[in-house]
Design a protein around this nucleic acid. Structure first.
Lengths: 156, 156
DNA sequence: CGCAACTTAATTGTGCACAACTAAATTGGG
DNA sequence: CCCAATTTAGTTGTGCACAATTAAGTTGCG
């Protein structure tokens, strides 16, 4: 009684669809929760990194978030236009652009501290479940990334 | 020994980030695997639904995929331009647009059957793990959706 | 020094997601 | 029948993701 080969193409069999749907559902909740702060979900992630690390070049920011400059450049310009960050060329290395918080950006953290609690309430998961799910997802991401660099890891 | 409140804003504590990262990592793998078929990830999901259900209005397609017409309309036009689907106004209800596969679109299924196997290999997960993860993610999505319609479900 | 290789951001172009709005058609109450 | 409410696609505008390319600056080898 194995699943017929033809059923592998059923939408409800696709792990990617569940993942994508969950990601977008999160997006909807964050949109509501972050509206007061004037941030989008991705902007919020950038701010999290800046609140944690203080100040860093676009390159480092992208490494933390797995995003490239094509995504970050316009996003950072919007944050700068909103008065939350400043971007300035590094004096040491003119290729690099340092991103740092303004006073207003740093102050926004005070209002952001309640965001995780509200999101947590929306998930209906307890701490243990969240950590377990995060661990599984991180392993999955690592496996997918490895496939990208080496599609056929084998014993050869 | 509880986690300091300040740490709730750490990026690596955010379940949404792990989810988002996994979703984008999947995107990269699908981009590679689907390149031969000339489909993007989202177009592939649409084709899955059409292969499974044969023909249906944009509305139904959106319900299956949790997508609205703002996303589907341009996407379907691209699929039509690629010769994979046809769109035509329903005779019964002129508001509705029926989407159906062309011969070429139906034939593409033969080449798509190997996609799930290749994706499965990339995840490094066995069938049990995939089903468990899917179930967790679907429950999470349901909880997040419920929050959107009723932010404070209580016993009142 | 002089120049090739590399690094880093930014830009450009394509496509997805979604909110807000518009337009057209259907439906149902009077 | 008439018209208000509803349903359904489509359009517009904003923002994210990413590939490919460009431009500027740095580094190191000879």
């Amino acid at each position: 009684m194995t699943t017929p080969a033809t059923d592998w193409l059923r939408l409800d069999q696709q792990i990617c669809f569940s993942l994508n749907a969950a990601s977008r559902a999160f997006g909807s909740v964050y949109r509501v929760v972050l509206k007061d702060l004037g941030l989008t979900y991705s902007q919020y992630l950038v701010m999290l990194v800046l609140w944690e690390h203080g100040e860093l070049p676009v390159k480092k920011l992208g490494e933390h978030l797995r995003l490239d400059s094509g995504t970050l450049s316009p996003l950072l310009k919007r944050l700068e236009a909103a008065g939350l960050v400043r971007r300035e060329r590094s004096a040491r290395d003119e290729r690099s652009v340092e991103v740092r918080l303004t006073g207003q950006g740093a102050a926004l953290r005070e209002r952001a501290v309640e965001v995780p609690r509200r999101i947590s309430a929306a998930t209906g998961l307890d701490l243990t479940e969240v950590q377990d799910l995060r661990a599984r997802l991180d392993r999955l991401t690592a496996a997918l990334d490895a496939y990208g660099t080496d599609p056929a890891p084998g014993p050869s």
